[in-house]
Simulated scan of single mutants.
Amino acid sequence: MSVTQEAGGQYRIHAADGRYWDEPQPPILGTGFLKGGGARQIAELWAWDDEDRPVLSELDESTQSPGLFLVGPQVRHDPLIYCFVYKFRQRFAAIAGHIAERLDIDDAALLAEYGAWGPFGNSDCCEDCQC
């Protein structure tokens, strides 16, 4: 799979079988649960610590590639490990809020009851979790 920017600012997403899709916005990389984690597919865009984990800012952003955020089981904020869907889903609203702020976009939907990501948008259920 690859992405090219076409005339007029469109992004063309090329599939390995020859199909393609045109999108007006840059695509988001969603790699799923690959051995070694999704960040390994773009390893050169991350700094790595001594335990072979991607180094992230408090905003879950690459310290090496500004604007690149990581969500998923590789996200750790010691002692918290965001290892389950309901736990790393908590981080979506925080990251979306930071992106909205940088792009000067209204983030009111993130602040509504439960926010855009449902009832898991808070850390109450995971305080001091060491799983």
Rank of each mutant, 00 (worst) to 15 (best):
H14S: 04
Q5W: 01
C131R: 05
G38E: 04
I105E: 08
R76H: 14
A47W: 06
F88T: 02
L29G: 09
C125H: 09
S57T: 15
G121K: 00
Q41C: 12
M1H: 07
T63D: 09
A100K: 09
G18A: 08
E51T: 13
L111D: 03
D17E: 12
D104F: 04
L80S: 06
A93G: 10
V55K: 15
R91P: 00
Q25W: 06
A16H: 07
I95L: 10
R76G: 00
V55Y: 11
A112G: 10
M1Y: 06
R53S: 12
A39Q: 07
A100E: 00
R89T: 03
A94W: 08
L56I: 06
D50R: 14
Q74H: 11
L68Y: 03
A93F: 00
G30M: 05
G115M: 02
E61R: 12
L70H: 07
V85H: 05
S123C: 01
L29H: 04
D52K: 13
I81M: 04
V85K: 04
K35Y: 04
R40K: 15
A47N: 15
W21G: 00
R89F: 05
A112Q: 10
D78M: 09
E101Q: 11
Y86F: 13
M1K: 11
I99G: 03
A94T: 12
R91G: 02
A112Y: 01
G8R: 06
L103M: 13
Q74E: 14
R53C: 10
S65P: 01
D106H: 06
A47Q: 14
D104T: 08
Q5R: 15
P119S: 08
V85A: 09
K87S: 15
D52I: 05
L70P: 01
E51Q: 15
W48Y: 12
Y82A: 10
T4Q: 08
I28Y: 03
L103V: 00
I95Q: 02
A93N: 02
L111R: 13
F84K: 05
E6K: 12
D128L: 13
Y82R: 07
E6R: 10
Y86K: 02
P24W: 04
L70V: 08
A7E: 14
Q90M: 11
S65M: 12
R89M: 09
